[in-house]
Amino acid sequence: MKWSELFTSSIGKKWVMAISGLCLIGFLLVHVTLNTLIWANIFVPEDNGEIFNRAAHWLGSNLIPRILEVGLFLFFIIHIIQGYVLELQNRSKRGKGYKVPMGSEGSNWYRKSMGLLGTLIFIFLVVHISNFWISSRFGGLKEITYPDGETFHNLYGEMITVFQELWIVILYVLGCVSLAWHLIHGFQSAFRTIGVSNKKYLALLNATGIGFSLLVSILFAAMPLSIYLGWVK
């Protein structure tokens, strides 16, 4: 079998979805870990975002994260385009539909709505990238100078400004809710697609997936909320 045949087969296409999805999950882990530094005040009084700004600067000025960033965009594009292609192809396979629909027996609504949840995340992503990524990469962020004389982009200050808008906060929270449902199915489905068939491991992966999805989504949603409610200043 040629590579082209492998990656255009139905299982090959799902495999590409799974691998790109797992890489995006890896990215979420890094992203959420770094972003929790906005709450550094809890442990470091009067930090006011300094640790977060320094960490973001380190990530933006190192070669390896910058190379990974290119890969990240590539995986996003592959995952989104392949996802839509598969969704449209799969929808076209039924032909005439049923008078009485199947319902969700043996499944869940979110397992059957990955395309819709993915679209909601995509809409969120466009707003999110225009809020933060573009300004942090191509200028537009204010500078802040710390007592040791070093100057950084004030990404923390930008967050505080952006999350004063209620509609943006609502959009972010909805994005996180969509992400949670998308991940609860996607996490374990990706492992099934790459071939984990052992019941013992599937049970472990399922539990890990639910835990990961909820933890990441709750932490992300708590960021705009804690800023909007004035807990982080």
């Binding site: 139905s10 299982i11 296409k13 799902k14 598969l86 192809q89 799969n90 396979k93 199947m102 969700s104 027996e105 043996g106 499944s107 397992r111 059957k112 990955m114 199915h185 374990q188 489905s189 099934r192 697609t193």
Partner: peptide, 11 residues
């Protein structure tokens, strides 16, 4: 179509 691991078939 391609499988999306929804589990309806098994049920």
């Amino acid at each position: 179509g391609a499988c999306t691991n929804t589990g309806a078939c098994e049920a």
